[in-house]
Simulated scan of single mutants.
Amino acid sequence: MPLYEYSCEQCGAVVELLQKMGTTEAGVPCPSCQGERLKKKLSVSAPARQAEGGAPCGSASSAPHGCSGCCGSCQ
């Protein structure tokens, strides 16, 4: 599940919520003021990690068997 960032239009608090993709902010109360006027903020994604040798993490060229091992999913 992705982590979404919201700002409260009533009190200005910024909150991060772990929600299913496609979920809207409707009905989610602000943890600071309990108001229900949260607005989803535009977030910047994290940069891709680099494996040893400069290949992008998880690319087939970063290891002979096709996995760089950087995320631990193949181990």
Rank of each mutant, 00 (worst) to 15 (best):
G69D: 13
Q19V: 08
S62M: 02
E36K: 09
M1R: 12
A55E: 06
S7T: 03
G72Q: 04
H65R: 08
R37M: 08
Y6P: 05
G53T: 10
V15Y: 03
E25W: 00
C67G: 12
L38C: 01
P56L: 13
V44I: 15
C74L: 07
T23M: 05
L18K: 03
P29H: 11
P47T: 07
C74V: 11
C74G: 10
A60D: 06
A26P: 08
G58H: 00
A63C: 02
C33F: 00
P47K: 04
G22N: 04
G27K: 10
E16F: 13
C74F: 10
S68Y: 05
A48G: 04
G66T: 07
L38H: 10
S68R: 05
C57E: 13
P47D: 06
A63G: 07
S73E: 14
C8G: 03
S62K: 01
C57Q: 04
G58F: 04
L18A: 08
Q50E: 11
C11N: 10
S59C: 15
Y4K: 01
Q19D: 08
C30L: 08
Q10Y: 09
A60P: 05
P64M: 10
C67M: 05
A63L: 01
A46T: 09
E9G: 07
P29Y: 05
C71R: 12
P31G: 14
A46D: 06
E25R: 07
L3Y: 11
P64Q: 07
G58L: 02
P64W: 00
K39I: 12
R49K: 01
L18C: 10
G66Q: 03
G69I: 00
S62G: 15
Q50H: 02
V44E: 14
G72C: 10
G27V: 07
A13D: 05
K40F: 02
A46Q: 07
T24V: 02
Q50W: 01
Q75R: 13
C71N: 12
E9R: 14
C70R: 07
G69Q: 09
A13L: 10
S59N: 15
C71H: 12
Q10R: 14
G53M: 12
P2D: 10
Y4L: 04
R49I: 05
Q75S: 15
G27R: 05
S73N: 06
V14W: 01
K39V: 15
S43F: 09
C57A: 15
P2G: 11
E16Y: 07
S45G: 08
V44S: 15
K39C: 09
S62L: 09
Y4F: 08
C30T: 04
A51E: 03
Q19E: 09
M1F: 08
C11V: 05
C71V: 02
A55S: 06
C71M: 07
G27E: 00
K20N: 15
S45Q: 05
G35R: 05
A51I: 09
G66E: 00
L38W: 06
E9D: 13
A48H: 06
M1S: 14
E25D: 02
Q19P: 06
L3D: 12
P47A: 11
S73H: 14
Y6K: 02
P29S: 12
M21Y: 00
A46H: 00
C57S: 15
S7G: 06
S59I: 12
M21A: 14
C30Q: 07
A26W: 04
R37K: 03
E5F: 06
S45D: 02
K39G: 10
P31M: 14
K40V: 11
C8Y: 08
A51W: 00
S7Y: 01
